[in-house]
């Protein structure tokens, strides 16, 4: 008997129909503009035309004092902001560990309450904290006074030395709910039997968390960290709302997001420049790419995933 191929191939157009809208919109509005931005960083504007400029824009950004001081300052601030921001992970995971305790009562209430700030916009969070920390209004001093620390109060957001740190903590306050929720979900998906076995083996309490639970949720923690890293470049809104586009006071809270905004659109005396804006965006892209690659190739490989 000879083998005959089936006569009619089944119609597969539905696969294209299912994929087309998502792929088209995503490509047209996200990927193409992204590459267009990367491309524009290699051009400069002369009259109405873009002129090929090689990597000269990057030279200006790195070494021309008019641009480079701002860039390095913003980059430094961004790194510092990220370091503070990372504090949200141990705090969030710690809270999740408490919430995941078996037989904890009112867990849903705590989860709901702690996640609440995450839902608010930067506008509300930024202005709200600005008011609370304002020396004009007595909320912060009175509160500190209530716990006997009135002497610690200072106009945190107004001082160059503390403004960025304060913003970092505000951001931690807002987003601690995200690592908490993700870690909580990971913790409660550890099978009860494993925890029971640990109890029988005498691994209890804090030791149980560090020896049994934590190793099992490392993949989630890795993912949370990389999301924090990427999200950190979206921190424009918070700075813009509380300190303005110039990263007041005296650029001490200027980060790459605000720098991109000013460079691209111009602000006050500075004229907008799409090519330099694109150059800043390209640098942010490269930094994120580097971070993600480090994560994928160095960190994630060392993390074992466990199937339950």
């Amino acid at each position: 008997m000879t083998r005959v191929p089936p006569r009619t191939r089944r119609n597969r157009t539905h696969i294209v129909v299912f994929l087309a809208p998502a792929v088209l919109i995503y490509t047209a509005v996200m990927i193409v503009p992204l590459f267009e931005t990367l491309r524009l960083s290699l051009f400069t504007t002369s009259g109405n035309h873009f002129v090929w400029n090689g990597v000269a824009n990057f030279g200006v950004l790195f070494f021309d004092e008019r641009q480079s001081l701002g860039f390095w300052n913003a980059l430094r601030n961004n790194v510092y902001f990220f370091v503070i921001q990372m504090l949200q992970n141990p705090i969030g995971i710690g809270l999740a560990a408490l919430l995941a305790l078996p037989r904890l009562r009112a867990g849903a209430f705590y989860r709901t309450a702690i996640f609440l700030p995450t839902l608010l916009s930067f506008v509300i969070v930024g202005f709200g904290w600005k008011l609370i920390l304002s020396p004009l209004w007595g909320v912060a001093p009175s509160l500190l006074g209530a716990v006997g620390l009135k002497g610690l109060f200072a106009p945190y957001l107004g001082r160059e030395s503390s403004a960025l740190t304060t913003l970092g903590f505000i951001s931690v306050w807002q987003y601690v709910g995200v690592p908490m929720m993700l870690a909580y979900a990971a913790l409660i998906s550890i099978p009860d039997e494993i925890i029971d076995a640990a109890e029988v083996d005498g691994v209890v309490g804090i030791a149980q968390f560090f020896r049994v639970k934590l190793p099992l949720i490392w993949p989630t923690i890795g993912m949370i960290s990389i999301l924090t890293f990427v999200g950190n470049f979206n921190a424009f809104d918070l700075v813009y709302v509380t300190q303005g586009a110039l990263g007041a006071p005296n650029y001490s809270t200027d980060i790459l997001g605000t720098l991109l905004y000013r460079t691209f659109f111009g602000y006050q005396l500075q004229l907008g420049d799409p090519n330099m804006g694109a150059t800043v965006a390209t640098m942010m892209f490269l930094i994120i790419l580097a971070g993600v690659c480090v994560y994928l190739f160095a960190v994630q490989r060392k993390i074992s995933r466990y199937q339950f």
């Binding site: 509005v29 996200m30 992204l34 267009e36 470049f233 804006g277 994120i288 993600v292």
Partner: peptide
């Protein structure tokens, strides 16, 4: 490949393409 392509966007904030988006 399609899945990877679509999920690339999780790691890249769309704001980086702002210059190109405004142009578009």
């Amino acid at each position: 490949l399609t899945a990877l392509y679509l999920m690339l966007g999780i790691m890249i904030p769309i704001r980086l393409g702002t210059v190109g988006i405004l142009e578009l």
